[in-house]
């Protein structure tokens, strides 16, 4: 080792860096400056616009905004509107069916895929590809598949079951269920991926310990593994609920809200009143209601989950 090295006198390295008060101040402000535009955008384009929409919903605006105060007239009109009620009840049917089926299918597929499957990566990517597609594409494809003339019905007829009818797409009673079918096809693989990631995150030794204790595999799943996936259920639920409330494209492509308005959802309702029927005030009121639905679903869920995690 060279002992003189570090006491050499010629070390320019030791000279203090160029002093520049102004640069230091700027540097201290840079992080805030960098975040500021996004912050302002969020303030204006999210919070400000929510407020603006709220204001619009209290006005009699039709084709153009008109800032007279109309009280809750638009909300009254909204809740007198049969189509809105249809949209809400469709949302309940669609949201419930979509979420429950996606969770069940996702969990089942994840558990199956977790059995040391050969070609797991390949299978997983097949389950997931619909997620890369636009809802419009999905809607178009399923519209064709569910088409009563040439679609599944014809296929089953060709197989020899000539009495089979399958016309949900044009049956006002059932049209909303076609949306569930297509939405589940698109999103269940994603839920599977979330569950699979959750399963992979479980500590192996817990399962080994349970096996040593003599628990059977189904028991281990029921009592240990699935309960420990609680956070995944939680986040999947949030995402699915969110997708359900926002669902718009799929309905537009698959049924366009029809037949009649039997498969309308709040999102399509809002679009058609705000942008095609020139009822801005009513559209704004329905948008506010959608926001409230999201808040009403997500906030209690988040709250209870946060309380749980704080207690234990």
């Amino acid at each position: 080792m060279n002992a003189t090295v570090l006491s050499s006198t010629t070390a320019p390295a030791a000279r203090p860096a160029r002093r520049c008060r102004w640069c230091d101040t700027l540097d201290a402000w840079l992080p805030k400056l960098v975040v500021a535009p996004t912050f302002v955008c969020s303030l204006v384009f999210v919070y400000g616009y929510i407020l603006w929409t709220a204001v619009l919903s209290l006005t009699p605006s039709r084709l153009l905004p008109n800032y007279e105060f109309a009280g809750l007239a638009q909300y009254e009109a909204l809740f007198d509107n049969e189509r809105w009620w249809q949209a809400l009840s469709n949302l309940a049917v669609f949201g419930g069916g979509f979420i429950v089926i996606c969770l069940a299918v996702g969990l089942l597929l994840a558990v199956l895929l977790d059995q040391k499957i050969r070609a797991e990566g390949f299978i997983r990517s097949i389950y997931l590809y619909p997620m890369a597609l636009s809802f419009i594409v999905t809607g178009t494809a399923w519209k064709w598949i569910l088409n009563p003339e040439f679609g599944i019905e014809k296929l089953v007829h060709d197989w020899g079951f000539t009495n089979f009818t399958f016309d949900w797409l044009i049956d006002p009673e059932w049209s909303i269920y076609t949306v569930i079918v297509a939405a589940v096809w698109q999103s269940s693989g994603f839920v599977m991926a979330l569950f699979l990631a959750g399963l992979r995150g479980i500590d192996d030794s817990i399962i080994k310990a349970a096996q040593v204790d003599g628990a059977s595999m189904p028991t281990i799943y029921r009592r240990i593994i699935i309960p420990s996936l609680r956070p995944v259920f939680f986040s999947s639920f949030m995402i699915l609920a969110h997708i359900a409330v926002k669902s718009f494209d799929l309905v537009m492509a698959l049924t366009n809200g029809g037949p009649g308005f039997s498969s309308d959802l709040p999102a399509t309702f809002m679009y058609s009143f705000a942008f095609t029927r020139n009822q801005i005030g009513l559209g704004a009121a329905s948008a506010m209601m959608m926001l409230m639905i999201v808040v009403a679903v997500i906030v209690p869920f988040m709250y209870s989950e946060m309380r749980r995690s704080r207690h234990g």
Partner: peptide, 17 residues
């Protein structure tokens, strides 16, 4: 802004030490 040659010398010395 230590000149490159100087940098190389310092790295060398440090590495030796």
């Amino acid at each position: 802004k230590v000149p490159a040659a100087e940098q190389a010398r310092i790295v060398e010395r440090v590495a030796n030490t």
